[in-house]
Structure formats: structure tokens, C-alpha cells
């Protein structure tokens, strides 16, 4: 039976956190543990989630958790996974739970090594598109045009000038057993990807977009709405890579205008028509690349 919101266990393995209202990352953590269960060992690097969940004595994770040094998540996962294997522990899920900066910048080398070694773990990158824990500095997953404190929007600088790195394709290039993109706005899709990842041996990486009301500048009640708009405008896609095959989970015939997405977030309020044109062009290229994978053996 497919996992859905309706048949999820009532048991909460993540609650009582101190995250901001409407935190997308906290939604990912809660849903993930509902699927992965209480025999999960979590490795967290420095991140929002580690900061808001490990305030003694109010620990939010009801499973084992370890806050690692910032660059080390993948390496610590490798150690845990290899040790579980050596001890014959079969029902334990080793889970990495890291933000975008901790994954795509400082943590990429360790993640790459862990995936190459083929250790049995799940890695979730909850992507709020900047270093939110230290107060909104850009990361390699900050989208084009976004304001952050290190991509300021004064007369000499107009926000982030580079596009997001593509973690999904980086993982595909490792010929990983399973990787996927997901969004907090599409929980059933996310839950089923988690369930699938749990069953597959070897490294699995999920890249989950997680809107951040504080850093993106939208109301906390808008997290899901913003997440949906990202997908409907084509600025975020839901896809999977398994057995060398790419599947696109939502493949819209046409996209909503990107302005619908940008106009609801303060971090983009300085964008011009020219910026929208650049962004749409990039979006179309990305989709072309993605659709080209369809039906082809990797």
C-alpha cells in the first residue's frame, strides 16, 4: 500500500521544536520520521534543524541524533552505516538530515565520498535556499536573483547572480541507486519517495525544497502555497532517478508565470522584467535537460 497522509502512524518522533512558524524544514523532519520509524539514527550538521531541536532538555528528536561538524555529515553517515552492517543490524535506518549549505557547499565532498562507497543510508537535503541558521547568507542552492545578506540588493549589487547547483544531477552522475527531488508542498509524493528509499539498499539522496518564511519573506501560513507555486511555475521539479532511469512526477504542459511565485516573497521584490526573462530562459533549459533523460538508460 502506498504511504499517504491518511495511513501515516500517529506516533510523533519529532515534536516540540523551536523552529520559526511555518518552517518547511521542520515539516520534512516530521514526515520523514513517520515513514522511517523509531529505529532511525540521525546525523545533522550545523543547521537550522540541529539548532532548533537540540535545546536541552527539550530534545525534539525521539530517535538517536548526532550533531556532526559542519563538513562531515556524509563521512559520519558512512561510519554509522558501515558499523551497522558490521554488527549485522538490519532494521536500522541511518539518516543524514542537512540544509542546503551543509549539503551543496561544505558537505558536498563528504556526501560524494559516502555515495561512491555505496554505504547504506538515506540523505535528506532540506533546501531553504540559504544559510538561514546564521542569518540568511547565500549558498550554492540560493536561486538567481534572491536577496541574502551576502548578496545585497543595493545600487552596486542586485542579489544572487548564479543559478542553483543541481544536486539531483550531481547524484545521478554518481550512478546512485536512488535519488529524488521533492517538496514539502507535495507530502504524498515526498512520503512515497521516503518509503521507497527505505527499501532500497545503498545510498539514497532526497533533495526537498523547504520554504523558509523568515528568510524568504512570506507569511508562515504560506509555506505550502509557495512550495506549490515553485512547482507550478517550473522553478522546482519533482523527479526520481532509480535503476538508471529518470521519472518526472509532475510534468506540466505549461508553466504558470514565474512572477506569481516571485511576487509573494520579499527576497525577490527587486527583480525586473529582464530578470524574469533570464530566469524563464534558465528554467526552460533545465526542463529540456530533464526531459531529455526520459526513457533513456543513464
Amino acid at each position: 500500500m502506498a504511504v499517504s497522509i491518511k495511513n501515516l502512524p500517529d506516533q510523533e518522533l519529532f515534536y516540540g521544536h523551536k523552529a520559526c512558524q511555518g518552517c518547511g524544514g521542520a515539516i520534512v523532519a516530521r514526515l520523514a520520521l513517520k515513514v522511517l520509524g523509531e529505529r532511525t539514527c540521525i546525523v545533522l550538521p550545523a543547521s537550522c534543524i540541529s539548532s532548533v531541536t537540540t535545546i536541552y532538555p527539550q530534545m525534539s528528536f525521539l530517535v538517536n541524533s548526532l550533531t556532526s561538524s559542519f563538513p562531515a555529515t556524509g563521512a559520519v553517515l558512512s561510519g554509522m552505516a558501515a558499523a551497522c552492517k558490521a554488527q549485522g543490524l538490519k532494521d536500522v535506518t541511518v539518516l543524514g538530515f542537512a540544509g542546503d549549505g551543509g549539503t551543496i557547499d561544505i558537505g558536498l565532498q563528504a556526501l560524494s565520498g559516502a555515495v561512491e562507497r555505496g554505504d547504506d543510508f538515506i540523505y535528506i537535503c532540506y533546501d531553504n535556499e540559504a544559510y538561514m541558521n546564521t542569518g540568511v547568507q547565500r549558498s550554492g542552492l540560493t536561486p538567481y536573483g534572491a536577496w541574502t545578506t551576502t548578496t545585497p540588493t543595493n545600487n552596486n549589487a542586485v542579489g544572487e547572480k548564479k543559478f542553483k547547483k543541481n544536486l539531483f544531477e550531481i547524484m545521478m552522475a554518481h550512478r546512485i541507486p536512488y535519488c529524488a527531488t521533492a517538496s514539502v508542498a507535495y507530502p504524498n509524493d515526498l512520503l512515497n519517495k521516503l518509503a521507497k528509499a527505505k527499501e532500497i539498499q545503498g545510498p539514497k539522496v532526497l533533495h526537498v525544497q523547504a520554504p523558509c518564511p523568515t528568510g524568504w519573506g512570506h507569511g508562515p501560513e504560506k509555506t505550502v502555497e509557495i512550495g506549490k507555486l515553485a512547482v507550478r511555475t517550473g522553478l522546482w521539479y519533482l523527479a526520481e532517478y532509480e535503476n538508471g532511469q529518470v521519472t518526472i512526477n509532475t510534468n506540466p504542459k505549461e508553466f504558470k508565470p514565474v512572477k506569481d511565485y516571485f511576487s509573494k516573497q520579499k527576497r525577490f521584490r527587486h527583480l525586473t522584467e529582464e530578470d524574469f526573462r533570464i530566469i524563464e530562459e534558465h528554467r526552460d533549459t533545465e526542463w529540456k535537460i530533464l526531459r531529455n533523460y526520459l526513457g533513456k538508460d543513464e
Binding site: F70, I104, T134, Q137, T149, T150, T151, P152, N156
Partner: peptide, 26 residues
């Protein structure tokens, strides 16, 4: 933390003086 303000201010001020601010990956 607690040095981040230095990077933030440099990202604002350096371009005004023709300087260069680069945020690195680690």
C-alpha cells in the same frame, strides 16, 4: 557566527570601492 557581520558588511561595501567579495563553498 560570531564573525558573519564582517562578511555581510564586506559584501555591501567592497563593490562600492571596486573591490571583490566572494562567498566560498567552505
Amino acid at each position: 557566527t560570531p564573525s558573519t557581520e564582517i562578511a555581510e558588511i564586506m559584501s555591501e561595501e567592497l563593490p562600492k570601492l571596486g573591490g571583490k567579495f566572494v562567498q566560498m563553498e567552505d
